[in-house]
Design a protein around this nucleic acid. Structure first.
Lengths: 124, 124
DNA sequence: TTTATTGTATTAAGTGATTAGTACAGTAAA
DNA sequence: TTTACTGTACTAATCACTTAATACAATAAA
């Protein structure tokens, strides 16, 4: 999947979200070795320093760990990945419901719109 | 409503989104006079320059217009406000569905979760 | 007329994100 | 041993956003 980084928000944050998504999706499996910092930076067309910052942050979160000279690896703790998925989904849902409520959409109205919108998406 | 500005994204963008929401909500009605730049800046505890930037941008969008010395007024074009509401909602919906799809949630799964989550919200 | 308020413009300073470039220590492979 | 690759650290420069501090012209109100 392409990185799709823009200048609206800090790039290192977008990188974190991108990698979190790929971990949840299983693009990177538990325990799997990641490409090197320089390799990832090249893929994302980003400065190695920026990629390093994102990876360090994810390491701090416990999502990966580095072996100093051998490389960097995804956590082997599958429950942590499941938890991550639920947290990401929960955040999306609560933000979405809150925002739609603010825009003035009631619960039933919202479900109707969503059903309709989801049918549209299926036609593609 | 409080402004709830953070440093994650440019403040002037957050101000724009906040005011767009208040216009859609009818906090500011079509044709209504807005507080002065300095007054709004004080309310949001933000520099007047930053507020000015946000307001100029919304003026460029056609959502408001300034009368040079008398003050600044919301557009009287109600259809523009309706359109704004639909655009904001449409953006929220498509972003949400896309993100949940990426996280691996199917359509039916999503509707079930939403129904459950909406019931939780009603209990409060 | 005088006063206060309006939107607007300008300059300077500070901050955080990003890039560029370089460097170092540890290790696996040749 | 030598070579290449690993994560990591550091400095400098640039850019956008924000704040601060003024300033000015136009107008409504006193």
């Amino acid at each position: 999947m392409s990185w799709n980084l823009n200048s609206d928000r800090p790039i290192f944050q977008q990188i974190i979200e991108h990698l979190e998504l790929e971990i949840v999706q299983g693009v990177y499996e538990p325990g799997q070795k990641l490409p090197s910092v320089r390799e990832l930076a090249a893929q994302a067309t980003v400065n190695p320093n920026t990629m390093q910052r994102a990876l360090s942050e994810m390491e701090r979160m416990g999502l990966m760990h580095s072996e100093r000279t051998s490389g960097r690896y995804i956590t082997e703790d599958e429950s942590m990945i499941k938890t991550l998925k639920k947290e990401l989904a929960g955040g999306e849902i609560s933000r979405f419901l809150e925002q739609m409520r603010r825009l003035g959409y009631s619960g039933e109205e919202l479900l109707d719109i969503l059903k309709e919108e989801m049918c549209k998406g299926e036609e593609k």
